[in-house]
Design a protein around this nucleic acid. Structure first.
Length: 109
DNA sequence: GCTGTGACTTTTT
DNA sequence: TAAAAAGCCACAG
């Protein structure tokens, strides 16, 4: 049993994101039970350095904007990763966000 | 033990 | 319609 279940849960949901799909912090937070916990999800991602298996580039904000791109070392690394997986990104913004949006509450039910 | 901060979201002005 | 403020929970100092 890990000490921070909240973080572990966030990482687990992020790992379940299929390739070519993206989700929002609020969706993960809502899946955990608190939509207001979106900031905690971002905090967990900030500690993503402790979890190399967490595709944080698949997690963006509600607007589909690549907010945490700066955490990848390069401001374009996140965009390149998403485009490499089949998710078109323009101006740090996911194209067809509504189509690529992956909701754990719906997919994982 | 208390304060500050944070890759957000929602509501109100 | 756009912009600004508040709310929220958890970790770090």
């Amino acid at each position: 049993m890990p000490k921070s279940d909240y973080f572990e849960d966030v990482y687990e949901v992020v790992r379940l994101i299929p390739t070519g799909r993206v989700t929002s912090y609020g969706a993960i937070a809502a899946y955990l039970g608190s939509k207001r916990g979106a900031r905690m999800v971002g905090w967990a991602m900030n500690n993503c350095h402790s979890r190399p298996d967490v595709p944080a580039h698949r997690v963006v904000n509600r607007q589909g904007l690549l907010t945490g791109k700066h955490c990848f070392g390069s401001p374009t690394a996140m965009q390149e990763l998403l485009e490499a997986e089949g998710v078109p990104v323009k101006n740090d913004q996911v194209q067809e966000w509504n189509r690529h949006f992956w909701d754990p509450l719906v997919e994982l039910q």
